[in-house]
Design a binder for these strands. Sequence first.
DNA 1: ATAATGTTGGAAAG
DNA 2: CTTTCCAACATTAT
Length: 569
Amino acid sequence: MKPPLSLLNPSMLSGSGSLMWFRKGLRVHDNPALEYASRGSTCVYPLFVIDPHYMVLDPNAYSPGSTRAGINRIRFLLESLADLDSSLKKLGSRLLVLKGEPSEVLIRCLNEWDVRKLCFEYDTDPYYQALDDKAKNYASAAGIEVFSPVSHTIFDPADIIEKNGGRPPLSYQSFLKLAGEPSFSLSVELSWMPPVGDVGRCEILQVPTLKELGYVEKHQDEFTPFRGGESEALRRLRESLSDKEWVANFEKPKGDPSAYIKPATTVLSPYLKFGCLSSRYFYQCLKDVYKNVKRHTSPPVSLVGQLLWREFFYTVAFGTPNFDEMKGNKICKQIPWNDDDKLLAAWREARTGYPWIDAIMVQLRKWGWMHHLARHSVACFLTRGDLFVHWEKGRDIFERLLIDSDWAINNGNWLWLSCSSFFYQNCCQICCLHNSLFNMSDCCFQQYNRIYSPISFGRKYDPNGNYIRHFLPILKDMPKEYIYEPWTAPLSVQSKAKCIIGRDYPKPVVLHDTASNECRKKMGQAYALNQRLNGRVSEEDLRKLRRKFDEDEDKQEPKPRRQRQKLIK
DNA sequence: ATAATGTTGGAAAG
DNA sequence: CTTTCCAACATTAT
């Protein structure tokens, strides 16, 4: 195979190697850092560093996995690495896998290998910002050129923030206006790569297997059905794009969160997260489909709209100090969440007693993926809807277990769903337009009133409860009349279904009707506090309000109202 | 100062 | 199947 002209350069003769440092961006297509590394280099070192904290089994973790990641995501990453290695081999190269603390390993490689250029995709996550600073500083001091292009996102978050006067836009619509049409050109498809250089004394590993990282079969009975890797990403992309009508008419909120055999969305999020799929390539493909159909949906609900949500969250996250915390986060409402580890554990272990919630949490554990609206249901339930547990606790669990967990998007959505940010307030638009002649505020309401019901929200999509039956087989024989609230089933029905509530499946940890009303009241008071103090809420203020919540609770007579028993035909 | 703006709820009533 | 109530705003643009 002859090298294309673009890769030939006089400097090839003088011995100039490049180090291509893979982290996300685990792909060969549209990878500007890889393209640059390959251009005019005598050799390229495609490196991936395995950080043991991220990858190696932690026997003390609450679920199978490492200290930071659940087993499904580790598996997804390993599959992605193996696929990348095989793609690189087709180009005449291979992936060099090393193990250790990433900055130490990288610096050792820069020292020992023939490297003139260090190339890696720019990353806005705080972890990489800190890591990359170290790498850039070291490389610059050593006279190594650094090339770090923005290619994980369609837009450069820094550009958008600058356009907005140094602050990130806080609504989707204002983001769209600022962003406008993207201008990027996909990088040239590689047909050939320079050979791997001499690695000296470095001990290069193969892409490890789960077993080699300490995992054994018994750690999980059902793995995510989604395979990692660029090849699978492109296959999935083509499969989704092949139904042009579906692409053109996609409307996110209309999808069915209970569809699991054939999910209602593309399930490309894990591939975007690891960069197995280029968001820019995906964007361009979608635009091509739009060109060839009469009409198509638009942001925020369209498929392009989904990609732009990702851009929005990346931008806000990058421009907001302490984005992943309540304290010190300017865009986050200060709310005295409770610290109830028992409620948190019930939610995490899928034993809240609400089958819709628990089934979603089982899907999270087994698959590492759930539909967007299913995530909404459980996030709302844990925080402002029912349990009033801190959103950071739920965020941590999603971050660990989701195969697509992405720092910016995960934190952004938890801020949103807990009504801590973004999702302050909304008017029903039609209602507002209609009433505008009378009184604009008549139809306005606080968003914290909009609570997802752990019973009726799922039933709306899946009246028979097939989703619950699949992920909570203990309830598989429960009649559909009771499957969303099995504690209301007569004992005879429970016996017949071989599922006694309180023995085989838990009773509800809280009564939704009362708990959600309590939450509404608490949110109202917390919002009032934030408003009164203009956002400057101290820890003492929060403690005081928390005490008041506790007193209010004590005042309540201990007569839990029986939940209404609603039957459907 | 005032106006415009804001991704996707639930239940009951009509 | 559509309307209304829920409780009664914060932020940004003009």
